[in-house]
Amino acid sequence: MKYIPFFGCMMTTKYPQFEAAVRKSVSHVGMELVDVEGFTCCPDPIYFQARDKIEWYTIAARNISLAEDLGHDIITTCSGCTATLSEVNLVLKEDESLRKEVNDRLKEIGREFKGSINVRHAITVLRDDIGVDKVAQSVKYPLNDLKVAVHYGCHLLKPSRVMRVDDPDRPQILDALIKATGAVPVHHDLTLLCCGKACMDDSIPDRMVMDILDTIQEKGVECMGLICPTCFDSFDVKQLILERKYNKSYSIPIIYYFQLLGLAQGYKPQEVGLHLHKIKPDPILKGLELVA
């Protein structure tokens, strides 16, 4: 099946290893990615939305309209892009007067939001269109017994009125897909806590992230698996910041879901860019007998 990938700003520049992991791994489960020229920032669901909601709708609607021209659904790979594009797509489909206001602006560049496609995070497509079984069948080197602390992040699941992906209080989707790689998903008390990235006062996210990392460390879990580059920012490079600021000591590798899947399909760690992470995953790669 054909899908239009929307990789966004962060993943194309700061973390291209995630884009590479998605492109490589989904080709083994029958997903064909059709690239579209001319996408911009989704735009950012926190600060751009805080600035002006109508302009936030308008830029997002322009992006969606480019995909509508080709008639395939958009798949998002960043929870921020998922938040913006899913909400705007739904709200503009439902609210006729808002759609008209946005389309009046889009007319100036000869575009129109029609409401003819859906926006879905790539892992939702894996579960619903491809099927967890087929994902498991693409695995050649199961990540046997690798313990992965699951981090859902907020915007895959909430607001559930918009996302309609899973129960936001008892989600299963990422667990099922981690199991498909042969790894063992592990939950803890703070599995569903936010990474806090949007808070203005640093001390709030600092304490949230330390609580999560401390919990994972106490449980002896080998790494964390997640689906969002902003959450990744909050846990990977942030471990170094927290070490300096609070005299902590962490070394918990943070791995994007499609990197786990790619490894299990037989890609080398470098091919999915694991060497680019601040917290090097070498100990778990050795355990899996994969050379770093």
């Binding site: 194309t12 520049t13 290893q17 590479a20 920032c41 600060y47 002006d52």
Partner: peptide, 28 residues
């Protein structure tokens, strides 16, 4: 800052020769 970045560049992150090199290494 985020608004102006989108307005002036279409994105919130910056490209660079390092980004280009990394993308190439990863086959992008």
């Amino acid at each position: 800052n985020i608004y102006n970045s989108v307005l002036q560049t279409g994105t919130t992150t910056k490209s660079s020769s390092l980004v280009d090199r990394r993308r190439k290494e990863l086959g992008l």
